[in-house]
Structures are given as C-alpha cells and as structure tokens.
Amino acid sequence: MNNERSMLSRLYPTTKFMITIALCLAAFIVPGYGFSYAVLPICMVLAYFAGSFKEFSNLAIKALLMIVVFIFILQSFFYPGHDILWSWGIFSIKREGVEFALFLTSKIVAVASAFILFFRITKVKDLVHSLEQIGLPSKVTYVILSTLQLIPEMKKLTLVIMDAQKTRGVETEGKLLVRMKAFLPTLSPLILGSVASTEERVLTLESRAFSANVKKSSIYTLEKTKYDRLVQILLIVLLAILIVWRVAL
C-alpha cells in the first residue's frame, strides 16, 4: 500500500529480526573489537536506507555513549590487573582493564545497535501481528499492544492530575524537592483511575466478542515477499561463510 516505504522497512518483521540476530552473532564470531564497534555504523547505514537515520542515530548514540564511558572508567580503574598504563595516587589504569572494557563495550554496542535498529524500523503493530501469526495467544499480544498505546495516554493523564492538584493549592513549580512532593499525590488517582478504566475496558472487549471461542481473523495483512526469502538466504550464507572462516583460522 505504502510505496514510499523503502524496501528495507517493508521486509517482514521476522526477516528484520533475523538481520538483528545475524549482526549480533557476527559480532561474537568475528574476533577482536573492531567489527563489533563497526556494527553501529552498519546499522546507521541500514537505518538510512529505511528512512530513519536521524531517529536511529540520535537514540543509539545517546543511549550508548553514557554506558560506554561509564564502563570504560569503571573497568579500566577497577579491573584486576598488573600492567599499569597510568596512575594517579591510589588510582591506576591497567591494560587488562582497558582490554576488558573494549571487549565488553564493543559487544554491548553491537547488540544494542542491532536491537535499536530492529525496533526503529519495525512498527509495533507489524511485530505483534507477526507474533500472532507464529501462534502467540491474542491475550498476550493485546497486553503488549495496549500497554504501548496507553503509555502516552498515562502521560497526558498525569499532567491533568497535576493540574487538578495545583488548583487545590499544591505547589508544583520550582525546586526538585517541591516537584517530587507534588508528584507523589498524583499516583493514587493515576492508579485508581487505571483500575477503573481497566474494568470498563474489559467490558469493551467483551462487547467486541474478544472472548469468543473461535479463531480470530485479521484484516491487517503483512505479506512475505521474495525479498524476504532473498535476504534470509543471504544472511544464512554470510553467517556460514563467517563460521567457516573463523574455524579455518
């Protein structure tokens, strides 16, 4: 239906997931840390072709930078080792620590980028649909989908409740402590409200025959195309070559 969507984003969710898994496996098969780090730029290129380069890069770099820096500091100073590269007082950077940090962060970067890419280029709706096709019960997929849809709703509701409390004299503007104190009372209407609306939502679902004892159908369809087959074969071949090369080495 949507011709503007690129070939990559039109792939079937399981195919996209195979790309992610293949990238992760490759990161562990290929020795050293160079390739693992390279998974990030690879993913960025893929994201570019899926038309979500900016969103992906922003998210991936923001999320990963903090973790990588943190692990580096921690591991280089505190990893047990003897080969001291640099020291200051009782603190010293050891070569073993740096190596371990490189190993650990490179794998984290690879796995995280691959997964962030997957969730960036796969609509939740498509993912859940394909899970249902595999045989996941509709109750489980309902919980996944409705939770994701409800998060922005909850956010809106929190703001409304905060407003209601301002009108009762609760100060919500100003220092962190003031805001923290203001935030706590919002929790009870938020929770009670969700309980009440959950009850009504159950009635809604029952009204729509959710518990009917038949196999559900779906007007939303996702087609596996010849590209899916092609990409899948390509991935398997590449992985096989990698493994052979690694064993032969």
Partner: peptide
C-alpha cells in the same frame, strides 16, 4: 457513557477499530 474506555486500545485507525469485533468472531477479512 465513557467515550475514552470504549476503544479497544490496540488499533491505530478507526477502520480497524470498527473491524476489531468481527476479527474476534473470526470472520473472513
């Protein structure tokens, strides 16, 4: 009464929202 809790919460467009009940009944797409 409450318009806000009467949507399934899992459909992102009105057409599929209306179709939800029939899907649950397993009707042919």
């Amino acid at each position: 009464q409450n318009p806000f809790t009467q949507i399934s919460g899992v459909k992102d467009n009105v057409f599929e929202e209306i179709a939800f009940g029939l899907e649950n009944l397993g009707m042919e797409p």
